[in-house]
């Protein structure tokens, strides 16, 4: 077991190193530091950004927007997903709405939302709209997967609703929900930053990306991009840790 974990880690590092080598070679061959900067200069920009006055503000505001959209989708998606999982009519009713949400180009959503909600709320709304269907679908499947015979057993033994919820409903749906959470967050996060590029809130990673493009500061653009990726990966790792704790029984089998 242990060797396979270290092996996985080795492969992980290897893939990052290969990526860096390709990048370095490309920038060397292209030989235009302004358009395709080398990894070193991007790392230097990252450090410079870290020391800049607004860095924390920019990061926190975008994180806040990302989380706001995500939490909204988590709450509304879980409730509607559960409801649809229990009631077939609710599912049928929501299906067209879901397909509309899923197939609307998110650029149209962002542009409309800019007109309706203004620049601060648009990234939240956009993030919510892409992650909501994922949470909803997973929760729907999770609710469907609940073993009804266990609920029957609990009823015969006179277990109250609260304990059925806590000891049967949550553990049954948790694996589905966590699978949804991981992908909903990473997609929602990307779209939130994307929406910021268009909506230009005062402090935002998206706004910073846009500005560095305007001033053709490609190394800063890449530096922000890498920060965006790093944050997303960190949160994904964090979600995995919580998941492992929450559904420990699955890992012990």
């Amino acid at each position: 077991m242990k060797t396979s974990i270290t092996e996985n880690k080795n492969i992980y590092f290897l893939s990052i190193i290969v990526l860096l080598i390709i990048w370095k070679t490309a920038s060397f061959a292209y030989n235009n530091e302004a358009l395709l900067p080398s990894p070193e200069s991007v790392i230097i920009s990252m450090i410079n950004l870290l020391q800049s006055a607004d860095f924390i503000k920019v990061l926190c505001f975008t994180l806040l927007r990302g989380f706001a959209g995500f939490i909204l989708s988590l709450i509304i998606g879980s409730i509607l997903g559960t409801w649809a999982g229990i009631n077939l009519y609710v599912e049928k009713f929501l299906t067209p709405l879901l397909s509309v949400i899923k197939s609307t180009p998110f650029m149209s959503v962002i542009l409309l939302s800019l007109l309706w909600l203004g620049s601060e709320k648009t990234p939240i709304f956009a993030g919510f709209l892409v992650s909501f269907p994922i949470i909803y679908t997973n929760m729907l499947q999770g609710t469907r997967s609940i073993d009804k015979s266990l609920i029957e057993m609990a009823r015969v033994y006179g277990i109250d609703r609260l304990h059925i919820l806590k000891d049967i409903f949550f553990p049954s749906t948790a694996p589905f929900l966590f699978a949804g959470i991981a992908s909903a967050f990473s997609i929602g996060w990307k779209v939130t930053v994307g929406a910021e590029v268009l909506s230009q809130p005062k402090y935002a990673i998206g706004t910073s990306l846009w500005e560095s493009k305007i001033f053709i500061e490609v190394e800063i653009l890449l530096a922000w991009t890498i920060y965006t990726i790093l944050i997303s990966s960190l949160i994904e790792i964090f979600i995995k840790i919580i998941e492992k704790k929450a559904i420990r029984w699955k890992h012990e089998i």
Partner: peptide, 28 residues
């Protein structure tokens, strides 16, 4: 009456240990 039920399948909660499965019905 109150009932105990032994089903054809054991119907144990897979996320609870043997001990916790018994505890589940005794809690109240």
């Amino acid at each position: 009456l109150t009932f105990s039920y032994v089903f054809q399948d054991a119907r144990l909660l897979p996320w609870k240990t043997v001990k916790e499965n018994l505890d589940f019905v005794l809690k109240n």
